[in-house]
Amino acid sequence: MIDPNEKNWPYYQALFFLQDEELTELAQAGQKIYDQKDALYQRFYDWLQNHPFFLSYYTEDVLQAIRDSEDIFWDDLLSGQADDEYIERQRFFGQVFASVGIPFDAYLAFLNYYHQEVQDLLEQQGLLSLNLLKTYRKFTGIAVSTLTDGYSSAKDELLREKEETLSSMSTPITPLWEGILLLPLVGFLDSERAQQVMHAMLEAIAEKNAKVFILDIRGIAVMDSEVANALIKMSKAAKLMGCQAMLSGISGNVAQTIVDIGLDIQEIQTHGNMLNALRAALRLTNQSIF
């Protein structure tokens, strides 16, 4: 029984209705055109150098990596040998193309041209029967599917890392004074980001032994009940750690919105601007600017 959740060689072989005898026929044809391999790759490199995006994407390092892998590419396509290692190798190649920044459409153009060159060579040598053409298209379909799977997974990972980086950059906690921390909030504050902010806030309070934490909300795009409740939770969490949370940047519009939606934030100390919040924080911690 083939598990559709486990995308190994038996899965792809069944998905594309590819038989072992067909792979044997493909391998026999591949042996007959092996002596044309170098000429085919030279045409391929000529095509790459005339590609409109060549200078942007196909750098010398990328070209060298392709040259170093010529025999692997050729054997993977025409040796008729396919197993789980073959599948993982195709995924790896897809990940490599994604990691060097080649866009998906340029990547597909690369695959399509290479596969078409091999198909044309088989036809020129009088080897491309209808059955072999069907086999070749099924096998290249598996190759494109697995290569694309690897490309997509690498892009997803790069996106996840980027989101984590942006998330960490979006919570720039700054020590203002001994025991006083500041976090300017900018943009939208949904439930997921609120959790990230609270986590970063509590870690900073513990690390710096902070007594006051100022949340400056001038840059908040929307003030609604979800945002206000998130701020209340942050204040309560800080209080449990012996830290007073303050809000600064309360504009007239924000104050009116809070009143209109009937929210009670009296337990949070609020200030119209950051300077007033800092003065209050200094008094609370028995410090002064001078």
Rank of each mutant, 00 (worst) to 15 (best):
L159W: 07
L215V: 04
F97D: 00
A245E: 04
F110H: 12
I180M: 05
E88V: 04
E21V: 10
D3R: 07
T146C: 11
Q244R: 13
G141N: 07
L278M: 13
A39V: 12
L78S: 05
D83Y: 07
I66L: 06
G94E: 03
Q124S: 15
G187K: 07
A200S: 15
Y45C: 04
K233M: 05
T148A: 12
C243R: 01
E117I: 14
R137G: 10
Q269R: 12
E203A: 15
T174Y: 11
F54L: 01
L183E: 05
K236L: 11
V197G: 03
T171A: 11
E226S: 14
L18Q: 03
D76L: 15
S79D: 05
R218H: 13
A238S: 10
Q196D: 12
E60Y: 09
L284V: 10
S170D: 04
L130T: 12
A245V: 04
D264V: 02
E85V: 09
V100F: 06
R67W: 09
M234C: 08
D61Y: 09
Q28D: 10
A154M: 09
I180T: 03
L111A: 12
E192N: 14
L132G: 03
V118T: 05
P4K: 04
A206Y: 07
M223E: 00
A255H: 06
E70T: 11
A65M: 13
I220E: 05
Q269N: 11
D120S: 13
I142L: 09
Q81N: 13
V144R: 10
E226Y: 10
Y11G: 03
A39Q: 13
L166V: 13
L215C: 03
E192L: 12
L133S: 12
I268M: 00
S235A: 10
P10A: 04
L181S: 06
A237M: 06
S167E: 13
L247F: 03
N276W: 08
L121Y: 09
L183N: 02
G101T: 02
D190Q: 00
Q244H: 12
A14H: 11
V197H: 02
V144P: 00
L202W: 07
S99N: 09
F104T: 08
F53Q: 14
V144D: 06
V227H: 02
N112Q: 14
Q31A: 12
F17W: 08
G179K: 00
Q64R: 14
E60N: 13
Q19D: 11
L278C: 07
L181G: 02
N112H: 14
E70S: 07
S145P: 03
S56N: 13
T24E: 15
M234F: 00
F92C: 01
S99C: 01
Y41T: 02
A210D: 02
D120P: 00
N5T: 14
